[in-house]
């Protein structure tokens, strides 16, 4: 997919694109919160390292090469009741559509069922060779509302905070300058006006609130909005080098290197993969 960051209709700067949860802008009711379930079979303190990241980094963790084992899913669901829909949608027809057209598809039902419930699953993997747990969230500013990210972060940080595991956050941001930044509780290497947002920002906020110093956060520069980030070749090289050591060097470096590059290109996350003289 070729993603264009700009469009012809100018959106006001203070409005961020995100999925619409509540359609009735005049509502005075509180919206329900998504429920987050983490499989009870996963015991976080069994692992030496827990890596929390986002989809753009998946190519760094080739499943076959690392012999990753699926441990289940983090599941999050938001159920919205009918009353949360707009009056306009509920009373779109002044007569009963199904009664008049029993065999036809009711277009108002589609929007109701299509948008009424939100459900997402994010897998948890174990990288057995290094005693590492990997959780990667598929964040996407068009589909996943930040409320899900905030609540997953809240639940995850309270579950994984223990003395035995060290936490590594790995994310990409177009709000930082062209260097890889390492952030810990004691060292903030980002300078105004740089900042971190998205799932990694949300996790970092929760970890700082808890006050744990058992974490490290790596943020790499990227281009593009949340869920559609593109990384430069030099950033990829640095990440591959760092994570080859991180993930244990039982692999052949060349094989790992080629596999990571191949995956990034396949996912269209490399800035060089779509350079043509066309729009």
């Amino acid at each position: 997919m070729l993603f264009k960051q700009w469009n012809e209709l100018v959106e006001p700067r203070h409005q961020l694109d995100s999925p619409v949860i509540l359609k009735n802008e005049e509502s005075l009711q509180e919206s329900p919160l998504p429920q987050v379930e983490i499989p009870s079979t996963v015991n976080f303190s069994d692992y030496k390292k827990i890596i929390l990241t986002t989809k753009v980094m998946n190519p760094l963790f080739p499943k076959n090469l690392l012999k990753m084992e699926d441990l289940g899913n983090i599941e999050t669901t938001l159920l919205l009741t009918e009353s949360k829909m707009t009056d306009d949608e509920q009373n779109h027809y002044s007569w009963d559509f199904n009664e008049n057209f029993p065999n036809e598809f009711n277009p108002s039902m589609e929007s109701a069922t299509g948008n009424n419930n939100f459900s997402f699953k994010f897998p948890i993997y174990r990288i057995s060779s290094t005693d590492t747990l990997l959780i990667s969230i598929d964040e996407n500013f068009l589909k996943v509302s930040p409320i899900f990210l905030n609540l997953i972060s809240k639940k995850l940080t309270s579950s994984i905070n223990n003395d035995k595991s060290s936490i590594l956050l790995l994310g990409a941001s177009d709000k930082i300058s062209n260097n890889i930044k390492t952030v810990t509780n004691k060292n903030c290497s980002i300078n105004p006006p740089e900042f971190i947002t998205g799932f990694i920002g949300s996790l970092l906020y929760e970890l700082l609130e808890i006050g744990t110093d058992n974490f490290e956060c790596i943020i790499v520069p990227s281009e593009g909005p949340i869920g559609f980030e593109k990384l430069s070749l030099s950033t990829m090289e640095e990440l591959i080098n760092q994570f080859f050591h991180e993930l244990g060097s039982q692999m052949d470096f060349k094989t790992y290197y080629d596999e990571c590059h191949r995956n990034w290109k396949l996912e269209g996350s490399a800035t060089s993969t779509q350079s043509g003289l066309y729009i």
Partner: peptide
């Protein structure tokens, strides 16, 4: 710092 569950996530350096 006030709870920001209902806001878009943000962590930044200290401004001056």
């Amino acid at each position: 710092s006030i709870d920001s569950t209902f806001l878009h996530p943000f962590v930044g350096p200290l401004d001056y």
